[in-house]
Design a protein around this nucleic acid. Structure first.
Length: 556
RNA sequence: GUCCCUGUAGCUCAGUGGAUAGAGCGGCUGCCUUCUAAGCAGCGGGUCGCGGGUUCGAAUCCUGCCAGGGACGCCA
């Protein structure tokens, strides 16, 4: 059982005991029971419950705190319980218990920090899902990093996670993409052809066309245009998905499922969902189109579901898609990560959940604010269809996946951010990611030295760890489970970055004040204990870096 | 006009209603014969956009205003 769980259990027990003895009235406990005090001198955990209970219990906070503190059961983890004005109860962990946790961490290995908040629920995280009509660009990197880190965090928190990319292979934009490819294909064969109005001008289509000519020759030339566009489109789509998959892989983003939008139509699910909505009266015809009546559910406007040309809208696909996720595949929870430019769809999607008879609690729509790009002192709005864009690949090639991931992960998805390309390489040198990785590499260096000197720390006695720097480092390590719990509850993987920095700071501080491998024979017992400590620290640092999908280098 | 996000140190940003608001970068001062100085210690730097409100307690919740970004399509 983790430290915070022990403290909470003991506190609840103490409260129940005071109530059972009639010292305090029975009232419901509000909110979180314990928290982490910010400053030093208030212990490792504290409870402000007495302040909150003062009113319902009709007693002074200090009296309540005193009564509860007096009933605190003995727990080897809890060294001290103090009452502090104006009504806090502060808990200080026992140094001996803290030291013993080194063994616990080493025994847990890579699973240290895992919690069971998810209780095995199946959750799907769908992210990036950019239309496959161009390479992933810098703006998408944010969603890719956020989504992949969140998926890892949810897994650590006890959810069964599936990572999914939704491939929109239909719609007007894709049609335009296919026609653009057709034009490039004709050009590649020396024919006179012009890109369609507003077509995709990116060089990747020129490359695709050349590859297709190399691989399949001019066989599309003899077909009627429409057939050629379709045929080329299939090949182009496959190439585009491969390219996207490859680019994302360089950012260490991998998926379990690539879900094809068209399959919703080919397997008949779309028709089923449309019929369901029709039956419950959520569809209506107007101006030749079929509308989803979201106004019935409190929205300001209705939304087109099937166009007057009989083609379903993106939104209609999305309705069937979410039905597939939550009903067909039966995920307990679904998390969609969208760019802020899709925010307008949030109310419609929520209304759709209700219309489909699904609880809104099962769907989280997370928005990340858009990234703007700064180049040559000028701010450029990112747009896929504009000619000039910076691809994800260019970014990763320039700053590396680690710095790139850390950079995006440091910011909360709610904050707008500006990416200064001119400073990217320079920033990467100053990127705090190296500070964290360096801590890991330093530990590896120590372990290497210990290995060379043949020191076996298996019998190291952790109770020898009493130095302030040792205990501070350990206490920070022990926070990992709480961190994972909080990140999963708030869907906020970005806490990892600050935590890793704090952990690395405490490691570097320890490294500076405590010598691990010593030449003096009388230091051997402490050396062994410290070797255990650094092994545990290495495990926790590696875990954090792993959750962020960053490298944990053995040397730098 | 309506809706969403943001406004915290010179810059980039953390901050899960609690006690004295933090980090990185930049600036200044020290510290390498010893496990990597990609490090450590210290100094300086704040009307948490502004005004009201709720609360024992507000950077955090509510509200009004100001500023920046985004969305309001039979595009995706």
């Amino acid at each position: 059982m983790y430290a915070h769980q022990r403290v909470e259990r003991a506190l609840r027990k103490a409260i129940a005991e005071t109530q059972a003895r009639g010292l305090l009235p029975r009232v419901e406990l509000p909110g979180p029971v314990i928290e982490r005090p910010q400053g030093r001198g208030h212990g490792d955990y504290s409870s402000s419950l007495p302040l909150k209970l003062a009113r319902p219990m009709r007693k002074s906070p200090m009296d309540i705190a005193g009564l509860i503190a007096a009933e605190m059961p003995r727990d080897e983890a809890i060294g001290r319980v103090d009452v502090a004005r104006p009504g806090f109860i502060n808990f200080t962990l026992s140094p001996a218990w803290i030291a013993q946790q080194v063994d616990t961490i080493l025994d847990s290995g890579p699973s240290f920090g895992n919690v069971n908040a998810g209780a095995g629920q199946r959750v799907q995280v769908e992210f990036v899902s950019v239309n496959p009509n161009g390479p992933i660009h810098v703006g998408h990197a944010r969603g890719a990093v956020f989504g992949s880190a969140l998926a890892n965090v949810m897994e650590a928190a006890g959810y069964e996670v599936e990572r999914e990319y939704y491939v929109n292979d239909g719609g007007n934009q894709m049609a335009l993409f296919y026609r653009s490819l057709h034009a490039r294909y004709l050009q590649a064969l020396g024919r006179d052809a012009e890109l369609p109005e507003g077509g995709y001008r990116g060089g990747y289509l020129v490359d695709f066309a050349r590859e297709i000519v190399e691989e399949e020759g001019d066989r599309f030339l003899s077909m009627p245009d429409e057939e050629a566009v379709t045929g080329l489109g299939e090949v182009g789509l496959r190439k585009m998905i491969d390219l996207i998959r490859q680019d994302l892989r360089e950012l260490r983003v991998e998926y379990d499922v690539w879900f094809i939008e068209q399959s919703l139509y080919s397997d008949g699910l779309f028709g089923k969902v449309a019929a369901l909505l029709e039956e419950s009266g959520y569809l209506t015809e107007r101006d030749g189109a079929v509308w989803f009546r979201s106004t019935l559910l409190g929205d300001e406007k209705d939304k087109v579901f099937i166009r007057s040309n009989k083609a379903p809208t993106y939104f209609a696909s999305d309705a069937a898609y979410h039905y597939n996720k939550l009903v067909t595949r039966g995920f307990d929870r679904v998390i969609d990560i969208w760019g802020a430019d899709h925010q307008g769809n949030v109310p419609f999607m929520k209304a759709m959940m209700t219309a489909l008879g699904l609880s809104q609690d099962r769907l989280d729509l997370l928005l990340y604010q858009l990234v703007t790009l700064r180049r040559g002192g000028e701010t450029v709005r990112l747009a896929t269809r504009a000619g000039e864009l910076v691809t994800l690949k260019e970014l990763v090639d320039e700053v590396g996946p680690d710095a790139c991931r850390f950079f995006f992960l440091t910011r909360s998805p709610d904050s707008q951010m500006e990416f200064d390309l001119d400073l990217a390489a320079q920033q990467s040198k100053e990127n705090p990611v190296y500070y964290v990785q360096y801590a890991h590499a330093r530990i590896c260096g120590i372990q290497k030295l210990a290995g060379e000197r043949g020191i076996d720390h298996g019998d190291g006695r952790v109770l020898l760890l009493t130095h302030e720097a040792e205990l501070d480092l350990l206490k920070k390590m022990l926070q990992l489970p709480e961190l994972i719990e909080a990140m999963a509850a708030n869907l906020s993987p970005h806490y990892l970055t600050s935590y890793s920095l704090e952990l690395a700071t405490l490691y570097h501080r320890f490294n500076d004040s405590c010598r691990v491998v010593s030449g003096a024979p009388e230091d051997l017992p402490v050396s062994k204990a410290r070797l255990k400590l650094v092994a545990a620290a290495r495990a926790v640092l590696a875990r954090c870096l792993g959750l962020m999908l960053m490298d944990a280098p053995e040397q730098m």
